[in-house]
Computed example of a mutant assay.
Amino acid sequence: MNNAEIVNVLLVEDNPADARLIKEACGGFTIKNEVNTVENGMDAMEYLYKTGKYNDSKRPNLIILDLNLPKKSGREVLKEVKQDDKLKLIPIIVLTTSQDEEDICNSYRCYANAYVTKPADFDEFDELICSFEDFWFKKAILPTCQNCNRD
């Protein structure tokens, strides 16, 4: 991505403190970005399908997804997104407290692009989120989706 583009991130996180930390860390990125937050899996799907109160939402370039969410779990969101031809190319980083081997394996079976556990230490948490910019927005080449079945 070049510096003129604005990177759109969908943060699916029900913990307000974690959401605030992630948004603050993204605010320090050198790449221009917009982080939109939803607090549960049902709102995440409405956001992605542009329905309900999210009919004007922007398609994200990246999704940061917690697994343990109300209404619809992050596991269900991941599975649904990666089975939808119009959404499946959006990279999804699972960012969760779970270190359970089953959660890790199931996330990758459902085509998560990365699985990362939340550090307990504030500085480590900030450093982790900042590493997303370096890899996902400076090194990785993300689809612009002009011809990728996205609008």
Results as ranks from 00 to 15, higher is better:
residue 96 T to F: 00
residue 123 D to I: 03
residue 140 A to G: 12
residue 101 E to R: 03
residue 118 K to C: 15
residue 115 Y to N: 08
residue 143 P to V: 10
residue 108 Y to C: 04
residue 134 D to I: 06
residue 129 I to D: 01
residue 145 C to T: 05
residue 136 W to Y: 14
residue 138 K to W: 05
residue 111 Y to E: 10
residue 122 F to M: 01
residue 105 C to V: 09
residue 137 F to K: 08
residue 145 C to S: 10
residue 116 V to Y: 08
residue 150 R to H: 03
residue 142 L to F: 10
residue 97 T to L: 05
residue 140 A to I: 06
residue 106 N to H: 11
residue 127 E to Y: 02
residue 101 E to G: 10
residue 141 I to G: 02
residue 111 Y to P: 03
residue 125 F to M: 07
residue 149 N to K: 09
residue 100 D to T: 05
residue 96 T to Y: 06
residue 113 N to W: 07
residue 122 F to L: 12
residue 130 C to R: 11
residue 137 F to T: 00
residue 123 D to L: 07
residue 124 E to V: 13
residue 126 D to F: 05
residue 106 N to Q: 12
residue 146 Q to K: 09
residue 101 E to D: 11
residue 105 C to P: 09
residue 107 S to T: 09
residue 111 Y to F: 13
residue 142 L to Q: 06
residue 106 N to F: 08
residue 144 T to I: 00
residue 103 D to W: 02
residue 110 C to F: 14
residue 122 F to G: 13
residue 114 A to T: 06
residue 144 T to K: 01
residue 131 S to Y: 11
residue 151 D to T: 14
residue 97 T to Y: 05
residue 122 F to P: 08
residue 114 A to G: 11
residue 119 P to T: 09
residue 135 F to W: 15
residue 137 F to E: 00
residue 104 I to N: 02
residue 132 F to T: 00
residue 149 N to S: 10
residue 109 R to K: 07
residue 116 V to A: 04
residue 146 Q to P: 05
residue 98 S to D: 05
residue 102 E to D: 15
residue 99 Q to T: 13
residue 112 A to R: 00
residue 145 C to I: 03
residue 126 D to G: 04
residue 109 R to N: 15
residue 150 R to W: 00
residue 120 A to Q: 12
residue 148 C to N: 01
residue 108 Y to V: 06
residue 128 L to P: 01
residue 119 P to W: 12
residue 140 A to N: 05
residue 141 I to N: 11
residue 98 S to V: 03
residue 128 L to Q: 10
residue 138 K to F: 08
residue 129 I to M: 07
residue 125 F to L: 07
residue 131 S to K: 15
residue 112 A to I: 04
residue 132 F to R: 08
residue 120 A to T: 14
residue 142 L to P: 00
residue 145 C to L: 14
residue 112 A to L: 05
residue 125 F to R: 09
residue 96 T to E: 01
residue 118 K to N: 04
residue 116 V to Q: 07
residue 97 T to E: 06
residue 150 R to V: 11
residue 129 I to S: 03
residue 109 R to F: 06
residue 97 T to A: 12
residue 119 P to E: 05
residue 111 Y to C: 14
residue 114 A to P: 02
residue 97 T to M: 11
residue 148 C to K: 03
residue 118 K to P: 12
residue 121 D to L: 06
residue 111 Y to A: 10
residue 121 D to H: 13
residue 121 D to M: 08
residue 142 L to I: 10
residue 138 K to E: 15
residue 136 W to R: 03
residue 144 T to M: 06
residue 110 C to L: 04
residue 146 Q to G: 12
residue 126 D to W: 03
residue 137 F to M: 14
residue 125 F to H: 13
residue 118 K to T: 09
residue 133 E to T: 12
